[in-house]
Design a protein around this nucleic acid. Sequence first.
DNA 1: ACTAATTTATGACTGTAATCATAAGTGTTT
DNA 2: AAACACTTATGATTACAGTCATAAATTAGT
Lengths: 198, 198
Amino acid sequence: MIEESSLIDFGAEKRFYAKEEYIFKQDQPALFYFQIASGEVKMNNYQPDGKEFIQAIFSAPRSFGEPPLFADIVYPANAIAIKNSLIWRLPKSAFYELLRQKPDTHLRVSQAIAKRLHYKALMAAELAQQSPENRILKILDYLKQEVNNITTPFGYKTDLTRQNIADLTGLRVETVIRTLKELEQKNEVKIINRKVYR
Amino acid sequence: MIEESSLIDFGAEKRFYAKEEYIFKQDQPALFYFQIASGEVKMNNYQPDGKEFIQAIFSAPRSFGEPPLFADIVYPANAIAIKNSLIWRLPKSAFYELLRQKPDTHLRVSQAIAKRLHYKALMAAELAQQSPENRILKILDYLKQEVNNITTPFGYKTDLTRQNIADLTGLRVETVIRTLKELEQKNEVKIINRKVYR
DNA sequence: ACTAATTTATGACTGTAATCATAAGTGTTT
DNA sequence: AAACACTTATGATTACAGTCATAAATTAGT
């Protein structure tokens, strides 16, 4: 995450993206550094059969889509606003110049990427293993601890729908619904009028 | 990947790791930057049921285990030498000093992490989806194109065993064996005396 | 050269998540 | 208030990867 003052200094513009609007698409090369000022963004893939896989959900003040700025690769997923959002957009060349002039910022960007890689590695191991219970708990715990910094038991109320959880874990809605009920039996989650607490 | 001259300048030591030896373990904090001089290293997790999941396999001159050097996180997986290996080991503080003094190197390290994240994102989408065929082809194509830079059809002969592929994809050996045979039928891979070509 | 260990292979059976069908509850829009 | 879309829910059935058992082929170790 880069300070707004720096973003402005280096010529970033704050753009509005309507809900459902694409910010970039899979397989495109990267032209900008993006950072959320307000709103929410998801990164996803659509599988051959049309099923969605959500790579991540980001909110302010997080940046996203940096990897292809660094390496000679294309976006591995789409980025789509899931709420009306304001997003800083800094051209690639200016981003490089900013990194060059501000080593601390470069370090923070590296940190952000490192954390994302860490999460992906954990999720990959979880996804490879089959158990729906573990997949779901991993996602919930990640959002609870890493994103929302909550430690109290059942202190995290997710605003993900069952379908969202399915798309994040690669499961089906019905499986998520059934597994969540089993997890409630086992006292791993609480469900209070349909809302999931962890 | 950092030039050996720089590594030496900043006090790195080249250590020998015997086959099967641990270089670091999951959940430990990072103390060193590692770079392979010779040999081969795998990063893996062991699931509760004892099943192995291989996060990645690295060979010279690649570095590994950088993310926890940057962010306040622990290793998400073990690193184990799978051949007798010589590995550069640079203390964390010296690594930071090196990055500070050599911005180009910092950029290259960022690039390496970015690429790894890219791969993880692709694999996560593939793992979430169930099809064994796609999981296996994704791994083979990744190794073929990204690691070995081969483009000719069936020009890549993998040295992974069926079990390796199983551990990389989260499948079972039997499933890998059967799926590879189906893939051969479909002319997606060639199998010449048990070796897999892609 | 011989033994042991690993890798590849195949068949039979099982368990579980996906799939399909249907519906009730909740929220949003006009 | 009605219409519509979305979300949650449940039951029945199916498909398919996992599991278990066993063995042949290959490689590594002494």
